[in-house]
Design a protein around this nucleic acid. Sequence first.
DNA 1: GATAATAATAGTAATTATTACTATTAATGG
DNA 2: CCATTAATAGTAATAATTACTATTATTATC
Lengths: 136, 136
Amino acid sequence: MRHTKQRKLILECLRMTTSHPTAVEVYDQVRNKMPNISLGTVYRNLDYLCSHGLARKIDTCGERKRFDATVEDHVHIICTVCGKVRDAETGPGISPQTLMHPENTAASGFKITGVRIDILGICPECQKRQPSKTNP
Amino acid sequence: MRHTKQRKLILECLRMTTSHPTAVEVYDQVRNKMPNISLGTVYRNLDYLCSHGLARKIDTCGERKRFDATVEDHVHIICTVCGKVRDAETGPGISPQTLMHPENTAASGFKITGVRIDILGICPECQKRQPSKTNP
DNA sequence: GATAATAATAGTAATTATTACTATTAATGG
DNA sequence: CCATTAATAGTAATAATTACTATTATTATC
Ligand SMILES: [Mn+2]
Ligand SMILES: [Mn+2]
Ligand SMILES: [Zn+2]
Ligand SMILES: [Zn+2]
């Protein structure tokens, strides 16, 4: 709601990189410009940016979440060992079966082991509990 | 490596349900049959089962991991609010574009908001660090 | 079946990512 | 400028998972 220096800096930092950083990585980066920003502020603002459509939270296979300023739908290549995330360079209309073909993934240098497809939504219980804000 | 009662019970529990339980949910279930099994044992065995191809660990949108005894590739419907997981009833050869069409998801009762597609693999750095076991 | 070797366990402590709390600061509308 | 109050820094708390360690129980061998 308010345009704070911290919020602007965090979004800038996220837009500057393609590394899909963790909250702590954003924190470390952002401290170069603002040495006493707090980690809590970074977490709070990353959540804020996500809930306002300016960033996305990524569930990696590791233990900590990663963040992405690219909000358009796109495919990620995720390392199941270290949790690293890269953007896949796939065109539109690609099928799950062809997604992991070498010609689509070679550039990443990853050794591909599988594809994960999840449909995201809101379950019946949560729909009852959380009526849409436009229709209370 | 050894066939313990605990390990057998945990796998049985996981195979009995379609709920994609968390480690703690498995723990609660399994304690009915073996009241003083420890939570650490549940975590250790779930990891063991996953690394031996008998179970899968699921990254939900929530904070805790879930587990699935169905190891064949299949599509999940995940609640982005509570992290609940259901199996999608999709046939083979379905495209990402049609995955979330109402006719494929209506049965779940979920309000669908998006599809998440990730390619999984091992990054160049981790390939160097972790040479395949068969070729040391 | 008894025995020895040791993988696995129970119980507990430690770690780590994330969230909550609170007094203080600073963005914003008037 | 000033009042309002959202947001912050700093710290404490929470919660999921992992690590540790003495003890137990599985399994291979006799
Ligand atoms: Mn991305
Ligand atoms: Mn499943
Ligand atoms: Zn890696
Ligand atoms: Zn839900």
